[in-house]
């Protein structure tokens, strides 16, 4: 399959008082055409910074891309100037955000904000743009488009506003939709609706989706490919099938084990990963996950593992063999126990 986006050795961060703090440190991955890629990680793992780098919006938030290439449709986004970037943003790559409640301008009507998005990229008359806006708003599952377009954001619920955001993102039929925690602020029923909508739109519009989430459940529902990030590095890249069958990286395993299962007994305490993610200014030496890793060895503390091919996936870990052996042992244990 051909790749729509290739991120190569991306380093992005913020200029601190004395040092440059790398929020994303040497990240590489691809997104295929029509594929849904989920980037999963805790807060502070660099997921959002990665997406903001792809949109080149990071520059407006005091961040900077200092290394690496972002190849979109064969063109390097990192080398684009502001004018060229504006032609890509909202047109070929669109983005929706975590906070639907604050992501729309409170003083303009929904209609105006959608129409504006259409007219930034297409030279159509206002009337024609309004017609398109009506279609878009129906496409994202909002009924009574005429009334809705005249309303202001404060008159709509969170789920509605996220639908409007999606309509805005779809205004110019993007090839890639970046969704940065699109459902985090919404309750579960609305979350399910929004995820359904994204799946449906992806199929209809044949676009790729890069979904950023800290919720492994959302990833399980949506992903073709899963990318696990931790402290600005990729820990594991794997197809969704393989990943949920058998995650390899100790961090991935920790993430999966911290999710409650529908089967099994109640009252069993959930596993959690002890400790917390390191701050940008104080990244541990060696493997960044080593201070919290149950498998950590001397080598992990001293030497940083690289993301290497392992069967069909890529994993950054020195102890894959140990982890797998442990996994096998656990499986046989539980089978014996049953």
């Amino acid at each position: 399959m051909d790749k729509i986006l290739q991120v190569k050795n991306l380093v992005t961060g913020y200029q601190g008082k004395n040092t440059f703090m790398k929020a994303v440190d040497g990240v590489s991955f691809d997104i295929d055409r029509g594929e849904t890629v989920c980037i999963v990680g805790e807060s502070g793992s660099g997921k959002s910074v990665t997406s903001m780098s792809i949109m080149r919006l990071i520059e407006y938030e005091n961040g900077k891309i200092i290394e690496g290439d972002i190849i979109f449709n064969g063109e390097n986004i990192v080398e684009k100037n502001n004018y060229e970037m504006r032609k890509i943003r909202g047109s070929k790559i669109s983005m929706i955000f975590q906070e639907p409640l604050t992501a729309l301008n409170p003083v303009f009507t929904i209609g105006r904000q959608i129409v504006e998005a259409i007219r930034f990229h297409q030279s159509v008359k206002k009337k024609e743009a309004y017609k398109q806006a009506e279609e878009l708003i129906q496409l994202v599952g909002i009924s009574d488009p005429r009334t809705r377009l005249k309303q202001y954001p404060y008159e709509l619920s969170g789920g509605m506003r996220q639908r409007v955001m999606i309509a805005i993102a779809l205004a110019s039929n993007p090839q890639l939709l970046i969704a940065d925690e699109p459902t985090t602020a919404l309750d579960v029923t609305i979350e399910a609706q929004i995820l359904d909508l994204l799946r449906k739109l992806k199929k209809e519009k044949k676009m790729s989706i890069m979904l950023i989430t800290h919720d492994i459940g959302v990833a399980a529902e949506m992903a073709d490919k899963v990318i696990i990030m931790y402290a600005g590095k990729i820990m594991e890249i794997s197809s969704a099938e393989d990943f949920f069958e058998n995650p390899i990286h100790p961090y991935s395993r920790g993430l999966l084990e911290s999710v409650p299962k529908m089967t099994g007994e109640r009252g069993v305490k959930l596993n959690s990963i002890s400790g917390s993610i390191p701050s940008l200014s104080n990244v541990p030496s060696g493997c960044r996950f080593s201070p919290r890793c149950p498998f950590a060895t001397e080598q992990c503390i001293n030497q940083e593992p690289v993301l290497e091919k392992f069967k069909d996936r890529q994993v950054a870990c020195w102890n894959i063999d140990n982890v797998l052996r442990d996994h096998l042992k656990n499986q046989t244990d539980s089978e014996v126990f049953q």
Partner: peptide
């Protein structure tokens, strides 16, 4: 946030 949205629209 909405300022970021407007920039994201191009």
């Amino acid at each position: 946030n909405y300022i970021r949205t407007i920039r994201a629209k191009g």
